[in-house]
């Protein structure tokens, strides 16, 4: 059963007022503009035993994503496709309010948002992830670890997922003359990422005293704590909307939707630029074998 969060981390009233005062002056406590994300730091290939891994810092939010690719059986309704399985774990390390145990509703929701953002737009060409058609396919397990929580886990997870997918290596599959299928020991193939996709989250903060509404990109934890609603929109690099989710205790006025959509699109472009910059730099500096 889903319940109104009761373990709300307490934000001092003076801090809340400070955040609102900054917003009323058109800026934010950390000196960002309303549409700017925090600084993004990226590392990949940190986990030798994983097929792909990435570590993303979005401000002080830290997310580690690991990909394992293993042979499995296809689902009956998609016999010619590999499988994509996304899971999210909030490590107890990440926040005093995270407890060990099975994923809570927020972790389930987050995993499903990431999954949906990738699936229908066919960000990964799952038809290329087949070993023996109808019998054996690759299972792509994406496991997202939230390591330190300072707001906006969704976008940090989405960026980490994309980077882990783009840098993952999987074994080469070949068929011998006798028709035998050989999965090589060496991991030399890429996961067929056809389109890069990222989510972009906008928070709505309402000043109860003035009634003013503020929309801000990539909320930090303290901004999230006083925000009443979040809207996450996923975009593919060719500009399509590939997913959407409103969350939080309040609502969004119909007239504000275009503003949110424009802000999130620009935010997504910034995330994608960062991902592209990292991948370009990595491929240009990695010595060829």
């Amino acid at each position: 059963m889903s319940m109104t969060p009761v373990e709300i981390p307490i934000i001092p009233k003076i801090r809340k007022n400070a955040i609102l005062t900054f917003l009323s002056r058109g800026t934010r406590v950390d000196e960002r503009s309303f549409d700017s994300p925090r600084e993004i730091n990226i590392k990949t290939d940190l986990i030798p035993n994983a097929n792909g891994s990435s570590y993303v810092e979005l401000g002080k939010t830290k997310v580690l994503a690991g990909i394992k690719v293993e042979p499995g059986t296809p689902f009956p309704d998609t016999p010619q496709e590999g499988n994509l399985i996304v899971s999210v774990e909030f490590l107890p390390h990440a926040s005093p309010v995270f407890e060990p145990g099975p994923p809570d509703e927020r972790a389930v929701e987050l995993a499903r948002i990431i999954d949906r953002s990738l699936r229908d737009v066919r960000a990964i060409d799952l038809s290329k992830m087949v070993i023996t058609p109808g019998r054996k396919v690759w299972n792509i397990f994406i496991d997202i670890y939230v390591v330190d929580y300072d707001g906006n886990m969704i976008d940090a997870s989405s960026i980490a997922t994309m980077l882990a997918l783009l840098t993952a290596k999987i074994p080469k599959v070949s068929t011998t003359e006798t028709g035998e299928i050989i999965i090589s020991e060496e991991k030399s193939e890429n996961i067929p990422v056809k389109k890069k996709v990222v989510t972009a989250t906008i928070a709505k903060i309402t000043d109860e005293n003035t009634g003013n509404k503020y929309y801000i990109a990539d909320p930090s934890l303290e901004e999230e704590m006083i925000a009443d609603t979040l809207v996450t929109i996923a975009f593919s690099e060719d500009g399509l909307i590939t997913g959407m989710q409103k969350s939080g205790l309040s609502s969004i006025h119909s007239d504000d939707i275009p503003k949110i959509l424009n802000m999130s699109r620009k935010l997504a472009e910034k995330y994608l630029a960062k991902i592209n910059e990292y991948i370009t730099l990595k491929t240009s500096t990695t010595p060829s074998i």
């Binding site: 949906r116 229908d120 737009v121 809207v231 929109i233 593919s236 399509l240 909307i241 590939t242 997913g243 959407m244 989710q245 409103k246 609502s251 969004i252 006025h253 119909s254 939707i257």
Partner: peptide
């Protein structure tokens, strides 16, 4: 006021 908004698909 919109209270539920989701999109699955493109």
């Amino acid at each position: 006021e919109i209270t539920l908004l989701q999109l699955n698909g493109v």
